[in-house]
Amino acid sequence: MTQPRYDVIAIGNAIVDVIAPVTHDFLVAEELPAGSMRLIDDERAVDLYAKMGQATEISGGAAANTLAGATMLGLKTAFIGQVADDQLGEIYRHDLTAVGVDFDTPARAGDPHTGRCLVLVDPDGERTMNTSLGASQFLPAEAIDDELIGSTRVLFLEGYLWDPAEPREAMKRAIKVARAAGVQVAFATCADFCVHMHGKDFRAMIDDGLIDILFVNEEEAGILEGSDPDAAFESLAKDVPLVVMTRGADGAIAARGNERAKVSPEPVAQVKDLTGAGDLFAAGFLSGYCRDASLEESLVRGAVAAGEVISHWGARPEADLQAMVAKRLG
Score class of each variant (00 low, 15 high):
A293T: 06
Y160K: 00
E308C: 03
M171S: 03
G209M: 04
E296D: 15
G35W: 00
R173C: 05
V243G: 01
E166D: 14
L161D: 01
G307H: 01
Y160G: 02
E220M: 07
M37N: 13
T246F: 01
M197K: 15
N258D: 14
A186C: 07
T97Q: 15
D192Y: 07
D102R: 13
R168N: 10
V119I: 11
A319T: 15
Q54G: 14
Q322M: 10
A315P: 05
L295T: 08
D25I: 13
T66R: 07
S294V: 03
V263I: 15
G314L: 15
E318R: 14
G182E: 11
A141F: 04
G276N: 07
I206P: 02
A14W: 00
F202T: 03
M205D: 12
F138G: 03
P229M: 07
D230S: 11
D250M: 13
V177D: 08
D95G: 06
A34S: 13
V216T: 02
G257T: 06
G61Q: 00
L39K: 10
R153D: 10
F285N: 07
M205W: 04
A204K: 13
K327C: 11
P4Y: 08
F285G: 09
G12A: 04
V28C: 14
A283L: 12
I149Y: 09
I223Y: 04
G159I: 05
Y6S: 00
G74I: 01
A269G: 03
K238H: 13
N65R: 00
P4S: 05
T152F: 03
D95C: 09
E166L: 07
A326T: 13
N258R: 15
I144Y: 08
L139P: 08
H196A: 13
R316A: 00
I91D: 14
R291S: 04
V18H: 10
T189R: 05
C190H: 05
N130W: 08
L214V: 03
P241W: 00
V271F: 12
G69F: 03
V195N: 07
G150A: 11
D86V: 05
A78H: 05
A293W: 11
F202I: 15
D201F: 04
T23P: 06
H196C: 08
V300T: 11
E220A: 01
Q184G: 11
Y49F: 15
L120S: 08
S287F: 01
P265M: 08
A62M: 12
V325T: 06
Q82F: 05
I211V: 09
L148F: 05
T114D: 01
L133K: 09
A319M: 09
T66I: 07
Y92H: 04
V304T: 04
L48G: 03
E31D: 12
Q184Y: 13
P164Y: 10
A180I: 05
L133F: 07
I19W: 02
E297F: 14
E166M: 12
D192T: 14
I211L: 10
A231S: 11
V263W: 04
L299G: 06
H113F: 10
G100Q: 02
A181H: 04
P4E: 01
P164T: 04
Y92E: 02
F79L: 04
V121L: 12
T275H: 08
D17T: 00
T114Q: 02
V46W: 11
A293L: 15
A254E: 04
N13F: 06
L157Y: 00
I211M: 06
I91F: 13
F26R: 07
H312Y: 09
R116M: 12
G314W: 06
